[in-house]
Amino acid sequence: MPNLTLGPFAVERDGTLQPRAPGLRPAMRFAWRGRRCEAALTREEVHLAAFAARVPSTAEARAGRPGAFEAIASLPGSLPPGWKARLLPDHRVMLEASAPLSEPPTATELVAAMVRFALELDPYLDRLDSALVPLSGTANN
């Protein structure tokens, strides 16, 4: 039986993942609640990231900006251990986490890490939606 293709990966018969092209940092992109997310493999772990929200521009909601920045400032202390929140130059908020993987990783491990990240992300998306501009409905942001 030939290998299956899962995005940038070749899935071996035993379920282990190999990059389809050497030298790449393979990643799976997915959407959760309309947000663009990514699961990128390194040698030891999977790096997970989600574009969670964005700070409103002064043209959109000048009065809401202080509350948006307060919500972002309070976020890091409430995130699970190992998670990070970053405000990007374009004013989007990115939430990031990592999860260990076996060597070589399996497709099941990768999908399970993606699902756990998405489910753990939910309360933070709700919180950010109440104070910032949600990115829902635009998985391309």
Rank of each mutant, 00 (worst) to 15 (best):
A10Q: 14
E70T: 07
L95F: 03
G77A: 09
G34T: 04
E44M: 10
T108G: 14
L121E: 00
E45S: 10
R86V: 13
A53G: 02
L135H: 06
S78D: 13
L4V: 10
R29S: 12
L75D: 03
D14R: 06
H47F: 15
P123A: 10
G7K: 03
L110T: 02
N140T: 14
L4S: 11
R65E: 05
G34P: 00
G77C: 06
R92K: 06
P19D: 03
Q18V: 15
P26D: 07
A61S: 13
L135K: 03
T106P: 07
D126W: 04
G23C: 06
A73G: 10
P105I: 01
A107W: 04
L101G: 01
L135N: 01
G15E: 00
R62Y: 09
T138M: 15
R43C: 14
A39T: 01
P123T: 11
A40E: 12
L48F: 02
P8F: 06
A53K: 00
V55A: 04
L132E: 00
T58L: 08
G67H: 11
G137C: 12
R62A: 08
L75K: 01
G137N: 08
R54K: 12
R36D: 08
L121G: 00
A59C: 03
N140L: 05
M28E: 08
T5N: 14
V115R: 10
N140H: 14
M1P: 13
A49G: 11
P80H: 06
L4A: 11
N141C: 10
V111M: 05
P123C: 09
R116N: 06
A31Q: 15
G82R: 05
A99V: 02
L132N: 01
D122M: 09
L48M: 04
L119G: 11
I72Y: 07
R20W: 11
G64L: 13
M94Q: 08
F69R: 09
A49Q: 12
A71H: 01
E96K: 14
R36T: 14
L135P: 00
E120V: 06
G64E: 03
F30Q: 05
S78P: 01
V11T: 01
R36Q: 15
D129Q: 08
A27G: 04
R13H: 11
R13S: 13
F69T: 04
F30M: 09
E60F: 02
T106C: 03
A39Q: 02
A61M: 14
D126R: 11
